[in-house]
């Protein structure tokens, strides 16, 4: 474990070039254990690429990523998971042909969970159903036994979250969890995120829905054209004129 005050995640000068385009350009930030950081920015500003770089799905062209004091730049995705980083995807792509709860059994069965939780999980199917209930699937409903391909969008997002939690991660990275969820669905999720924070989990959330995001995170980082253009508390960042300007459109969308 990282020592007190040591950052859990340390990102320095991260860069990713796709051809001549710099999708992420010299981005640095720290996450201390228990922090919750929101990453905001217009579409195409490099938010998802940033997540892909940190979790090993994309290899950076420059810069370093450290996790628990260990250099994990360009690590294989499954190793990142093994160290305790779990992520969700913006485009939820479940295993469509498997029942919903079996979708969660996969991470419950993963090498990390088996090593980390051992017998604690007991029956894996049962553990999976419990995790689904944790993220807001109704108790004793038939929904977890349906094929994942039949799930409505809001449920898919929650399924993504359940798959992250199944890994018992130290750092949870959520890529636009709230997008496509209804207000009431988000309201159902917020207490869970609070609970995760209270349990000492570290959160990194990429989000377009700022109002809801600011109820979870305590600091914000804004990207534009792959560059870090602003960082601070939500209030500070939103007070910056360039941020307000860039975000006017999104704010309107949120309220609509």
């Amino acid at each position: 474990m990282a020592a007190e005050g040591e950052p859990l995640l340390r990102v320095r000068g991260l860069e990713k070039a796709f051809g001549k385009v710099l999708a992420v350009n010299d981005v640095s930030f720290d996450l201390r254990p228990g922090d919750a950081l929101g990453v905001i920015g217009p579409n195409g500003s490099g938010k998802s690429t940033l997540i892909n770089l940190v979790t090993g799905f994309v290899k950076p062209t420059a810069g370093t990523v450290e996790f628990k004091g260990k250099d994990i730049t360009g690590i294989a995705p499954h190793r990142a998971v093994g160290l305790g980083i779990a992520r969700s995807f913006q485009m939820a792509r479940p295993f469509y042909n498997l029942p919903v709860y079996k979708n969660v059994v996969i991470p419950v069965y993963s090498p990390r969970s088996r090593k980390h939780m051992g017998a604690e999980f007991g029956d894996r199917d049962e553990a999976a159903v419990h995790l689904l209930e944790d993220v807001g699937f109704e108790r004793d409903s038939p929904v977890p036994y349906k094929k994942a391909g039949e799930l409505p969008h809001g449920y898919l997002k929650r399924l993504e979250l359940a798959r992250c939690l199944a890994l018992d991660p130290d750092l949870i990275i959520l890529d636009e969890l709230f997008s496509g969820m209804s207000m009431s669905e988000i309201a159902g999720i917020l207490p869970l995120l609070e609970k995760l924070r209270a349990a000492g989990k570290t959160l990194l959330m990429v989000e377009h829905r700022l109002r809801e995001l600011f109820r979870v995170v305590d600091s914000v980082l804004m990207l534009q054209f792959g560059r870090k253009v602003a960082a601070g508390t939500p209030q500070e960042v939103m007070a910056m004129p360039e941020v307000a300007e860039a975000y006017l459109g999104a704010e309107v969308k949120v309220d609509a």
């Binding site: 979790t55 799905f57 995705p77 792509r93 059994v105 996969i106 798959r163 199944a166």
Partner: peptide, 22 residues
């Protein structure tokens, strides 16, 4: 569940990686 992972790899490798499997 071991066989389940096989099917999962067939359906969507990315999500299997994200679940911590090589």
């Amino acid at each position: 569940d071991y066989g389940l992972v096989f099917h999962a790899v067939r359906d969507n490798e990315r999500s299997v990686m994200a679940a911590g499997f090589d």
